[in-house]
C-alpha cells in the first residue's frame, strides 16, 4: 500500500472536481474491494475522495414510475427495502446472494457496480496481468480458470465481473445516473461495463472523474415475479460459477416476453438477448427454454478449467425458466 491522501467530499460536484484535477485520485465508497486492492498493491491511488457520506442514501419511488436508488445506499439496506422486495425481488435476491452480511453492510450501490474482477492473477502483483498492467500478458490463459469467462472474452483478458447486483440490474434495464466533469448523464447498466477487447484495463465506459450518483429502476410489472439463481462452489460467500437473473411474462402457455441476464460468464453482466429473442412467442416448455439457452451459449468458448460452465449455465437457465413459467 502506498501513502495516500484522504478527502471527504461535501457534494457530488466537489467530489468530481477533486478527482478531475488529480490523475491519481479515485472515489471511495464502502471500500470493501478498493481497500483490499490497495493492501495487495493492485490499486495504488494517491488520493481517495470519500463519497460514502454524500446524500445519496435513499431508495425512493420515481414520479413517473420506477424507483431511484442512491449510490451510497448499502447493499444490505437495499436488499431489505420493501419497494425492492415487492417490486424487484430479483435485485433483493441478487444482493443477498453476494458477499457476506458484514460486507453487505458496508458495500454501496455505486461501489458494487464498480468492483473489479477477482481473477487470482489480477489480484497478485507477482503474476502478469493485462488488466492490472496493460501489455504484460494474461496469466489466466493457460492457468487456473475455474471462475473465468466463456462469453465475450478476448486474447488479452478472460476475467469475469464479480457482481451479483449488476446482473439483476442489467436484466431490469436499470440506468445509472452519472455526474461527470461536464455535467450529468444517464447510462444503461447493460452498457456500463465493457467487454475486455484490447483494453482490459478499462472495466467500464466511465471516465476517471465520473461519479455514479444513483441507479434508476424502470417500472416493470413482470419484475414482481423475477428471480435470481446463483450457482457456486459453496453455499455462501463465493462468487458465481454462473448466475441467472430472469423474469418471464407468459400468457396462455406462450412466452410474451423474457428477460434474462447471466453472471459469472463474461467481463460484464451478460444480457442474454439471443435467448430472449428465441423465447418471444415460443411455448413455455422445457424444450423451448433449452433451445433458448443453447442459442445464447452457441458461441461460448470455454477454457481448460471451465468447460462445465456451458452445461451448467444451460441447465441453470432452464431450471429458472421452468420455475418462473
Amino acid at each position: 500500500m502506498i501513502p495516500f491522501d484522504y478527502r471527504r467530499a461535501t457534494d457530488a460536484e466537489a467530489a468530481v472536481d477533486l478527482v478531475h484535477g488529480h490523475p491519481g485520485a479515485t472515489f471511495l465508497g464502502g471500500g470493501t474491494n478498493l481497500v483490499d486492492r490497495m493492501k495487495l498493491g493492485v490499486s495504488e491511488p494517491e488520493m481517495l475522495v470519500d463519497v460514502s457520506r454524500l446524500p445519496y442514501d435513499t431508495v425512493e419511488p420515481l414520479p413517473g414510475g420506477g424507483v431511484r436508488i442512491g449510490s451510497a445506499v448499502p447493499n444490505s439496506d437495499l436488499a431489505a427495502h420493501p419497494l425492492i422486495r415487492e417490486q424487484y425481488p430479483v435485485l433483493s435476491q441478487a444482493l443477498l446472494a453476494g458477499a457476506s452480511g458484514q460486507l453487505r453492510n458496508l458495500a454501496t450501490t455505486g461501489g458494487n457496480l464498480l468492483q473489479r474482477t477477482r481473477c487470482v492473477y489480477f489480484q497478485d502483483v507477482t503474476t502478469p496481468c493485462n488488466k492490472r498492467e496493460p501489455g504484460s500478458g494474461c496469466s489466466a490463459r493457460g492457468g487456473y480458470t475455474r471462475q473465468h469467462a466463456i462469453l465475450g472474452a478476448s486474447q488479452a483478458c478472460v476475467a469475469t465481473h464479480p457482481s451479483d447486483m449488476a446482473v439483476a440490474l442489467a436484466m431490469l434495464d436499470a440506468t445509472v445516473q452519472v455526474q461527470g466533469p461536464d455535467g450529468s448523464r444517464k447510462i444503461p447498466v447493460a452498457e456500463l461495463h465493457r467487454l475486455p477487447g484490447d483494453e482490459p484495463e478499462r472495466d467500464t465506459v466511465l471516465g476517471q472523474a465520473d461519479l455514479i450518483t444513483a441507479v434508476d429502476l424502470p417500472e416493470l410489472a413482470m419484475a414482481t415475479r423475477s428471480t435470481y439463481r446463483k450457482v457456486r462452489d459453496r453455499a455462501s460467500y463465493a462468487f458465481a460459477l454462473v448466475s441467472v437473473a430472469a423474469a418471464l411474462d407468459v400468457a396462455d402457455g406462450t412466452v410474451r416476453q423474457a428477460r434474462i441476464a447471466f453472471g459469472g460468464l463474461a467481463h460484464k453482466p451478460w444480457r442474454a438477448a439471443r435467448a430472449e429473442e428465441t423465447l418471444r412467442g415460443a411455448p413455455a416448455t422445457e424444450e423451448a427454454f433449452r433451445a433458448a439457452a443453447e442459442a445464447e451459449l452457441a458461441e461460448a468458448t470455454p477454457l481448460a478449467d471451465n468447460a462445465f460452465k456451458v452445461p451448467m449455465s444451460r441447465n441453470t437457465l432452464v431450471s429458472v425458466l421452468r420455475d418462473l413459467a
Binding site: 487470482v120 497478485d124 503474476t127 492457468g143 453455499a235 455462501s236
Partner: peptide, 14 residues
C-alpha cells in the same frame, strides 16, 4: 494462486 479465504473455500455456516 487461490491464496486467500475468498478463493480457498472452507465451509461456511450455510
Amino acid at each position: 494462486v487461490n491464496h486467500d479465504l475468498a478463493e480457498y473455500h472452507i465451509a461456511t455456516n450455510a
